Computed example of a mutant assay.
Amino acid sequence: MAANKKGTDGRYRYRVNIGKDADGKPKYKNFYGTTAREARAAAEAYRISLGKGADPSQMDATLATLYDNLIAAKRAKGIGQKSLDRYEDNKNHWGPLLNRPAASLRSADFQQVLNALADWHDGQPPLSHYTLSNLRSSAKAVYDLAIPEVVQYNPIPKTTCPAGTPPEVREPITEEQQRWIRETPHKAQRAAMLMLYSGLRRSEATALTWADVDLQDATITVNNGYDFRAKRSKAPKTAAGVRVVNVPKVLVDYLRTQQDGCLYVLHNDKGKRMTEQGWKRLWQSYMCDLNIKYGHQGAVNKHDPAGVPMVIDTFTPHQLRHTFCTLMYFAGVDVMTARDQMGHKDISVTLGIYTSLDKKFKKKKINRLDSYLKKTC
């Protein structure tokens, strides 16, 4: 490490040898400071980082480059496009930090952005705690991958994830929509009935075989799910995912009429398990038919070239799972049992649903009291 005298601009310079160029001549990186000590400290820190494995050609890489490196690594591992898009979205949230050298960013820089995203900014609403947490986790992964070639430490663990907005509670479907499912024959009816009255996740329903269904005892055993990307069964993420679900008589009676000799409870026309695209097509067709029957009272042709306006409130497969939890609440099933039935790892998830419903239910009770008092007073 060589020192130079004070320059004409008033700064001190120290330089570190970082190898040789293509012609075999020594290459140096310069470090400046308002004092000799400051310049020397910066040069010494750089020299130490080289000793720890830093790559001189990468040490000026921006945060955007680090995100691109992580996305490339995830793509090489074969993760789905949806997950890759989420990393890209997370990258863009960092805004002004993206073009700065990653090694120069500190915890305070990231904390400032996180705090801004947790509040209204530039006319944009605040992000939820879940989104902020996911954003913070992605940045941590970005830095972990870059150590020690690009950066020497990870500033993210010293940040705190802001509260953000509360997560949006998925609304259960209405009693009318539940009736639609029970009374409308369709290829998707079996899937809808299954998820509505068992609370299975879509991946669990896809992996379900008739051997897992005990109609005599009115139970469904959940042992695994289905990985749509890898096209194979997968173990549940947590031990809570392996469970025996007690199902109501309405589902038992329906499933007795559905046994078709196929291995899987839900399957395509060839008897194979449903694919991601297969689910999408099936559900679109289902919502279209429900819309024509109940939204337009059958007075339109679904093949009309002009299209058929969607006038009903559509619903997703996951809403059916949420509705099952809601049905248990109104049936008086205790929260511990509901957690086991749903396969929630953390009871706070079940409690969140029950608490939300409890507030609405109590509000209705008070409204009834108001109505009664108006009549008697």
Rank of each mutant, 00 (worst) to 15 (best):
A163C: 00
G51C: 03
T355P: 03
I71W: 05
D260N: 15
Y12W: 15
V247E: 04
K234E: 10
N291F: 07
Q124K: 15
K234C: 03
A235Q: 13
Y329V: 06
V265R: 07
Q81W: 10
R40C: 03
D313N: 15
K272R: 14
C262F: 12
Q341L: 06
D289M: 09
W94I: 09
L373W: 13
Y294P: 02
P248D: 07
D289P: 00
T209S: 09
A76M: 04
K237N: 04
N291H: 12
N291K: 10
G95R: 06
R281G: 03
K74G: 08
K293E: 00
A235S: 11
S371E: 13
P305C: 09
D217F: 12
R106L: 06
W283C: 00
A72D: 12
W279R: 09
G24W: 06
N99V: 04
S203E: 14
K91Y: 07
Y197K: 09
Q112S: 09
P148V: 12
W180Y: 15
I18N: 06
P96H: 12
A45S: 14
K360V: 11
A163P: 01
K302W: 12
N301Q: 10
K25P: 00
A3T: 12
G295S: 05
V333E: 02
L98G: 07
D260Q: 03
L127R: 08
A39N: 02
